[in-house]
Design a protein around this nucleic acid. Structure first.
Length: 88
DNA sequence: CGTATGACGTGCA
DNA sequence: GTGCACGCCATAC
């Protein structure tokens, strides 16, 4: 299934301090309608080389995360995606 | 092999 | 702007 490998590669290509939506990743993977599968793939295919925490929803919400959605937001905040300054 | 569910997205009320 | 329903692909059972 090249799609899974493709998604993994796309997510891996995401630069630090940036984020991509599930839909964008699906499009880059070649299947714009597979945004559901993107989440499923990242969920099943856990890999430390894949910054899946940089994949967020189109609504701007961080979405879920295997290690915990909270951890996901924390990582993004550390990377500066939510603003390096006090976001409060 | 077939059904159900999910780290989602878009449309309509 | 918020809430509910439908659609989609892949994985799990």
């Amino acid at each position: 299934m090249a799609f899974k490998d493709d998604v993994m590669r796309v997510v891996r290509e995401i630069p630090r301090g940036s984020a991509r939506t599930y839909k964008q990743v699906a499009v880059l993977a070649g299947k714009p309608k597979a945004y559901r599968a993107v989440g499923t793939i990242l969920k099943t295919n856990f890999d430390p080389a894949i910054p899946c925490h940089r994949v967020i929803r189109s609504d701007g919400k961080p979405g879920e995360y295997n290690r915990g959605a909270k951890k996901k937001v924390e990582l993004l905040r550390e990377e500066g995606y939510y603003g390096k300054r006090n976001p409060e």
